[in-house]
Simulated assay, not measured.
Amino acid sequence: MNVSEIDMVTPETVEECLYFLSDKEKSVRLLAGGTDAVVRMKDGIGRPETWINLKRLDSLRYIREESNGIHIGPLTTHTDIIHSKLLWNKADVLAAASNEVGGVQIQNMGTIGGNLGTASPAGDTIPPLFVLDAQIELSSLAGNRIVPITKFFNGPGNTVQTQDEMITNIIIRPQAENEIGIFEKLGPRKAQSISIVNAAISLKMGEGPRNCIGGKIAFGSVGPTIIRAAKCEKMLSLGPLTDETIRDIADIAWKEVMPITDGRATAKYRRSMASALLARGLYRLMKRWEER
């Protein structure tokens, strides 16, 4: 099947899009930025009979704060996120991750909803969404449902989203005044690269030097889905994050991840780099906190 042999429809409203998705007679796929979908199709993966082009659904492109959190539309681009003062102030770990996605062209085209829907374990914006307790709204003609991000992914390229559903909203928890975050990434080259390992860290700080009172850590590209480092998280609040404590926490990370060996890196290398990225991120966060 050539690209030219695939039909494309361009709905004007979300309701019209849901109508197309409800058609059981054809295989359909949503097309947002297309930065991943078109490449996969050319490789013979995920070729639908009909593309549903979301380009005109401007109602799904927004960043706003409401009483229950920060709402982000699925068609919000990485560039939108990078330029959002709200996210840099209250969800810095997500803004930093979007800043590491590919080059400028990919940031302009790629969307946060597309990153979620692709469900790649290496997706850069996904670990930050884990540490920000994201809730994913899925909509169909039958109605809406909210899925915590911890229950959204079934495995690589596989989510709980059904064929007649689309992501219509992403809600994240805003960081508190005493909370700081960071995103760390290791890729094969500086830009345009898929993560070999990535990590999102969000810490809550108390009074006193390096006094961490809690935090969340999520790793990408080291397992079939994103991995929350629960044992490392428990160690964050055991005392001040001294250099020695940071090294101890990083050593635990080596045991928590479950990487595989593939064409980009060995499992052993990924374990070592997960540990190194966590240590680097914690050092940088402590330095940033001390400079406040």
Rank of each mutant, 00 (worst) to 15 (best):
M258Q: 10
E49K: 11
M1W: 06
R271I: 00
I249P: 03
A191N: 12
A122S: 15
A267T: 00
K287S: 14
A32K: 05
R264E: 02
G46S: 13
E165D: 08
V3G: 11
R271Y: 00
Q192R: 12
S193H: 08
K85H: 13
T125Q: 04
Y62P: 05
E291D: 15
I194F: 05
P174Y: 04
G113E: 01
A218H: 02
K90A: 09
M286H: 03
S139Q: 12
M235A: 13
L18N: 11
L87W: 02
R271S: 01
G220S: 07
P259K: 01
T266K: 01
I136F: 07
T13Y: 09
C212P: 05
F153M: 08
T261F: 01
K255P: 00
A276C: 06
G123C: 04
R280G: 13
N108P: 01
R29G: 07
E137R: 14
F219A: 01
A276G: 03
A176S: 14
I252A: 11
A200D: 02
L141H: 11
I170H: 05
R271V: 00
G214R: 10
D58R: 15
S98E: 06
L129H: 01
G239R: 13
R29L: 14
L116F: 06
I246E: 03
N154T: 08
L186M: 12
I146L: 13
T125Y: 00
T266H: 03
G117Y: 01
D58H: 15
V104L: 15
T125V: 11
R228E: 07
G117Q: 10
D92M: 11
S59R: 14
R40I: 03
L94H: 03
V160N: 11
D43W: 09
N158W: 14
A142E: 15
R173I: 08
L54R: 06
I70G: 03
I196E: 00
P156D: 05
L31F: 09
G73A: 09
R56I: 07
G102W: 03
I196P: 01
I52T: 09
N158P: 00
Y19C: 11
M41D: 09
T159Y: 04
F219T: 00
D36A: 11
A274W: 00
I112R: 02
E165V: 08
G206A: 14
S27N: 13
Q163F: 12
P11V: 10
G215E: 05
N158C: 11
T168F: 05
A191C: 10
L54I: 07
D164P: 05
R280P: 04
R284K: 15
S237Q: 13
D251K: 15
C212Q: 04
A91N: 02
I72H: 03
R210T: 04
G239A: 15
T76Y: 03
T79N: 11
L138G: 05
D80T: 07
L116H: 05
I167N: 03
I171F: 02
N2C: 04
S275P: 02
I112L: 12
T162V: 06
M8L: 11
V197Y: 01
